[in-house]
Simulated assay, not measured.
Amino acid sequence: MNCLKATLLSISAILSATAALATDVYMTRDKDGNVTFSDQPSQGSEAHKVKELPSMPAFVAPQAPQQPEQQEEPVIEYTSLGIISPTDETTIPTGAAGSLTVNGVLSPGLQPGHTIQLLNNDVVIDKGTTTRFKLEYMDRGEHRLQLRVVDKQDQTLIESNTITVYVKRASVGR
């Protein structure tokens, strides 16, 4: 068994040393039957042709990037924002109790992280992610309504036209 291990070790050493080229290896046996391998011929040696072994280049692991690349969000520019109802110069009658629904249209649609604000006389009175706002118990008089889209930093991205709505409410006499 030791003889076989020694033989295999000798063969692997020779093969690894000569793996780049095909070469001759010479094998001889001594009087006890031990095998000796050499690259030089000797008396009574047998020549063996050793062919090149298939090899594969060493794997080089790619280096991890120093810092992960930050992907910038695509910049979406809104093309239009408008109030479609109520129409400009609409009067809300006394029986409506100062209630109305403001409907708008935004193109393209609202992007993540953006908010739609409803302004009344240049003051934000409501905000959300849709262009529909329900107003109730509005005071009588003139109201200038406008929609606005803002980003996370509250920067205005687009504004609608301003419409004027008149609310009629019954007044209580003293």
Rank of each mutant, 00 (worst) to 15 (best):
E159F: 05
E136W: 04
V172A: 14
Q146R: 11
A170M: 13
I92K: 02
P93V: 05
Y78K: 01
G98E: 10
D32E: 15
T90V: 09
V35H: 02
V165N: 06
D126W: 07
V124H: 03
T7Y: 15
I83S: 07
G82Q: 14
T164I: 15
P74F: 09
N34D: 11
P57L: 10
Q43R: 04
L145Q: 06
T23C: 08
R29V: 09
S160P: 02
G141E: 12
Q67S: 09
A17I: 00
Y26R: 04
R148H: 00
L106H: 03
G104I: 06
T36C: 00
D154Y: 03
K127V: 04
K168S: 13
Q63T: 10
D88E: 09
G98A: 06
K51S: 14
N161Y: 05
I14T: 12
L145M: 08
D39A: 04
T79E: 13
A20S: 13
V105E: 11
G95A: 14
S45C: 08
T90Y: 10
V60M: 08
A17F: 04
L21D: 14
S10C: 01
I11T: 12
Q70F: 09
S42H: 08
D24F: 06
V123H: 03
V105Q: 11
A97G: 13
Y137Q: 12
K127F: 14
M56A: 15
T101N: 14
T87R: 13
K51C: 08
F133R: 09
S85G: 06
L135S: 00
Y78R: 01
T156A: 05
T164E: 13
P108W: 02
V124S: 10
S16H: 05
D126A: 15
Q66H: 02
F37M: 10
L106D: 06
P93Q: 07
V35Y: 11
H48N: 07
Q111R: 02
S10G: 06
V165G: 03
R174P: 13
T162V: 15
N120E: 15
T162P: 03
Q66Y: 06
P54A: 09
S38Q: 07
T23A: 12
S80K: 04
P68I: 04
E73T: 04
I84H: 01
V35F: 11
R132K: 15
